[in-house]
Nucleic acid binder design. Structure first.
Ligand SMILES: [Mn+2]
Ligand SMILES: [Mn+2]
Ligand SMILES: [Zn+2]
Ligand SMILES: [Zn+2]
Lengths: 138, 138
DNA sequence: CTATACGTGAAAATGATTATCATCTAATAT
DNA sequence: ATATTAGATGATAATCATTTTCACGTATAG
């Protein structure tokens, strides 16, 4: 992933490398705020704007998948930077990657039946995660 | 749909009825701004806040489906107020309802494999609509 | 008709994201 | 190592959709 950055005239600053590392290592689909707090552990002077800027760059380079939400902050996946389904817990806001077969069939069928040239898709399931279900019954 | 409102202590104001009518009759998945402009044709003093408030109520009553987008305004479907796939043109922002078989199978499979209790879902395909493809080749 | 909640209009507040700008620094050449 | 410079950062202001506030208006019940 670092290689993807070297291509352009991108500098490898400590903040940038740390943001990279956090996004690549986390499976939690972190928010900007979460990345910000984690970067600050190592580089306490880091600005929130820097986190936004670097995530934007990585998104443009196709190294990070952005999960935009109309309410509440966006979330990011640095492990699977391509469209895939997500499970969103409406209680604790945890986001998981379920194991599910690909949607190429569905995509192609919709493309041919509507005449759209499909370039992207988004599939989210909203519900209550197992842990929050336990909390309910307790 | 008007009946759904009578249930509670909801008053049937002219603005409210007009917003209702617009959402129920439009197949274009209008934005708040579009509803606002249309309401103003008949009731020129209507406030934008009133449009937001009434759409919120209808959403809470399950009479309108909200399509939230992280960037740009949200869009609303008053014809199919239940989860269904959408085709979003990334050029002209038009949104269509494609004809597609139901996703109950997929939903159930994901629910059982992840332990989630799924209460909602969202499936969007992003691409270029036929009309914008023509504009491209011209 | 009167009374009373609910609704409205106007404007301010909110919250996430983006833009601005002076300063800093990583990368490269000398 | 030093100088150069284009890109990066930090702090702050601006943006934009949406929500909140509050004084006033009005639909509805009695
Ligand atoms: Mn993911
Ligand atoms: Mn629809
Ligand atoms: Zn949960
Ligand atoms: Zn189009």
């Amino acid at each position: 992933m670092i290689e993807a950055l070297r291509g352009q005239n991108f500098r490898l600053t400590p903040q940038r490398l740390e943001i990279l590392r956090i996004l690549a290592s986390s499976r939690e689909h972190p928010s900007v705020e979460q990345v910000f707090e984690e970067v600050r552990r190592r580089f306490p002077t880091t600005s929130l704007a820097t986190v936004y800027r670097n995530i934007l760059k990585l998104k443009e380079l196709g190294q990070v998948l952005e999960l935009g939400f109309a309410e509440g902050g966006n979330r990011y996946d640095g492990n699977r930077p391509f469209p895939h389904p997500h499970m969103v817990c409406i209680r604790c806001r945890k986001i998981m990657d379920p194991d599910v077969e690909n949607l190429e069939n569905l995509t192609e069928r919709i493309a041919s039946s509507t005449g759209f040239k499909i370039v992207n898709h988004r599939l989210d399931f909203f519900g209550i995660c197992p842990r929050c279900q336990e909390a309910d019954s307790a």
